[in-house]
Design a binder for these strands. Structure first.
Lengths: 144, 144
DNA sequence: TTGCATGCAAATTGTTTGCAATCAC
DNA sequence: GTGATTGCAAACAATTTGCATGCAA
């Protein structure tokens, strides 16, 4: 059974509160593993499994967002207001983007598919400042 | 080293040609494993590793697209003309969508971030016909 | 002949699950 | 006390890599 299933009474737990608090504090969008490292500064014995389980619960409760970004790892976001994200194509870092793209009207989308269209999501890609610097530093040689 | 790296001479291989041909033939967007099963009908001894390696090469050469869709598995697309995709939130199936959403102008995006904005991608989500049918079949009870 | 590509197996990585011990209620 | 939650380890799934052999050029 899915751990985040609602068929069971939900109890509060110290671990979950710390996980939420630490995530809310961050302006980055950590992977589960990164967040686990951070939480371990306060709870040295938390297991990665607990972090995963609670992130799933928190996402289900709408307190955080599981970022469904391209790539292989989940990333988590403690912000609750609507915003977009941009991901570094080189290192995978994710940053907020205070911009909400105008969506294509759903009826228009619906005309092109037999799927029942439910939503859409625009993600941005680019080079983060650090990778850009590294990139610029190596380019001159190639152009010389 | 990355297998798709360009530091080495690229040889043609029968496997790669079959992989490309089979993918081009499909109107679905298979995962590497699914495509491997299909290719095995013609090359019973291909290994999944070979499929992964060649898909990486073909994507690098721009002959196919590695779909960077939300979710966990890569999916591959043999179409070369611009189009969008819609993914079933229930079963993960991916279908083409002959619709290119109007992108947010990059300069406008650039104003909101210190990343070097390179691109954007809109993905759609919905229920595929099969899952929709299954969903509809179970709903009436809940609404009765 | 040279060295890239393959098949196979083993290694990695990210995520989930089983289970006994704990802790919230 | 009851059963949800945890930590740990093991299981899983997807992808990648090491290496001896095979094949393209």
């Amino acid at each position: 059974m899915n751990y985040a299933d609602t068929g069971t009474t939900r109890r509060r737990s110290h671990q979950r509160e710390v996980i939420l608090a630490e995530l809310a504090k961050l302006r980055t969008h950590p992977t589960a593993d990164e967040l686990c490292q951070i939480v371990r500064r306060r709870l040295p014995r938390v297991s990665l499994a607990t972090v995963y389980r609670n992130l799933e619960v928190l996402a289900e409760q709408g307190l955080i967002a599981r970022l469904e970004l391209s790539g292989q790892q989940w990333r988590f976001d403690g912000r609750k207001d609507p915003h977009s994200h941009i991901r570094c194509v080189t290192c995978g870092a994710v940053a907020d983007l205070d911009l909400t793209p105008t969506p294509t009207p759903l009826p228009e989308v619906q005309r092109h598919t037999d799927y029942a269209v439910a939503g859409q999501h625009t993600e941005f890609a680019g080079l983060c400042p650090a990778c850009r610097a590294a990139h610029d530093a190596s380019l001159p040689e190639a152009l010389a």
